[in-house]
Computed example of a mutant assay.
Amino acid sequence: MSTSSGDNMIDKPRTLLAMGRRVGERLLTAPVRERLVQVADVDPYLVADDFTDPRARAALAEAEVLYTSWGCPPITADVLAAAPRLRAVVHAAGSVKLHVTQACWQRGLLVSSAASANAEPVAEYTLAAILFAGKRVLEIARLYREHRGELDWDARFPGFGNYRRTVGIVGASRIGRRVIELLRPFELDVLVADPYLTDDLGVPHVELDELLARSDVVSLHAPALPETRHLIDAARLARMRDGATLINTARGVLVDQEALTAELAAGRLYAVIDHTEPEVLSADSPLYDLPHVLLTPHIAGSLGGELARMAELALDELSRYARGLPFEHGVAAEALARIA
């Protein structure tokens, strides 16, 4: 590593950028590239999306750090064999499961993730969805547009509003915890359900079935694991209150989508869905047209200008590594079994 005067006289680690090309075009803005060369020995315009590419292969042989994001190829044992100097992966996105393989942990690589930065826009989206659900904003806007005039909203939606409504948070993940924090200024009753929760989040910790039965709005923030597939199945949907809203900004596999569609078509429940199974629904899916559904195409996470938050966090982590400091947002192999 060579010594530089940038970022408080740090040793600049040889770094390779690895991510999808389109992601790189959006994430690696001029300010990001400018800071990259201050904290790392890096070609800021070489972006590896295929580790077999000759230029990427040559850079990989010298790399001490991979600065990754969405679309990074899996870092397999074969890739590691071609990267004898590799010591760390700094991920400018959320989950590392798609590219950090078991071979990386066996090598003892240090891994960092910008999941906490990606959690912020998801939590903001969720907060807006919760407050809009309580006021029945989407339904009332649709009816107002259709009727072009006055309706008795109190009669149509008795008791609507957010005061003392109960919100259930399923999963005390980074995002779930951030949503709880964002809800504190509001006069809402908040519950949380998570079998792994051991610390006190300042809200009642209850079993999932109790949370579903008590909540006016249920927001999902659990990871996609074998044991959480269809966590919200037909039986659990039936436990929800008439008129309750289910918000899914986590993963589509958490919900039995067929059972949810039946409840929505019957008009008993409402839903705000940002993740579906499959992620892109078929053109004939009824979820596109059901009036009780707000369906969005996986936009809750970091997009547009929000990518800069993840890029900057990853740059901070790269700077910490260069100064010999531990990662602030490190990922441990043993934690992967219960995180996204």
Rank of each mutant, 00 (worst) to 15 (best):
L86F: 03
V90R: 04
H91Q: 07
A93H: 05
G94E: 12
G94S: 11
K97S: 02
L98R: 12
L98E: 15
H99L: 08
H99I: 07
V100Q: 01
V100N: 03
A103I: 06
C104W: 04
C104P: 04
C104R: 03
V111N: 04
V111E: 06
S112L: 00
S113W: 08
S113Y: 11
A115N: 06
S116L: 15
S116I: 14
N118R: 10
E120H: 10
V122T: 06
A123T: 11
A123D: 11
Y125E: 03
T126F: 12
L127P: 03
L127E: 04
I130C: 01
L131R: 01
R136M: 05
R136K: 15
R136H: 07
R136Q: 05
V137C: 10
L138D: 06
L138E: 04
E139F: 03
I140K: 14
I140D: 12
R145S: 10
R145E: 15
G149A: 10
L151T: 05
L151R: 15
D152C: 06
D152R: 14
D154K: 12
A155K: 15
P158C: 10
G159R: 01
F160Q: 02
T166G: 03
V167F: 03
I169M: 12
I169K: 08
I169E: 14
G171H: 12
A172D: 12
A172H: 13
R177A: 09
R178M: 15
I180R: 15
E181Y: 06
E181P: 00
L183F: 11
R184S: 10
P185S: 13
D189N: 15
V190P: 14
V190H: 07
V192M: 13
A193W: 09
D194L: 11
D194S: 12
D194E: 14
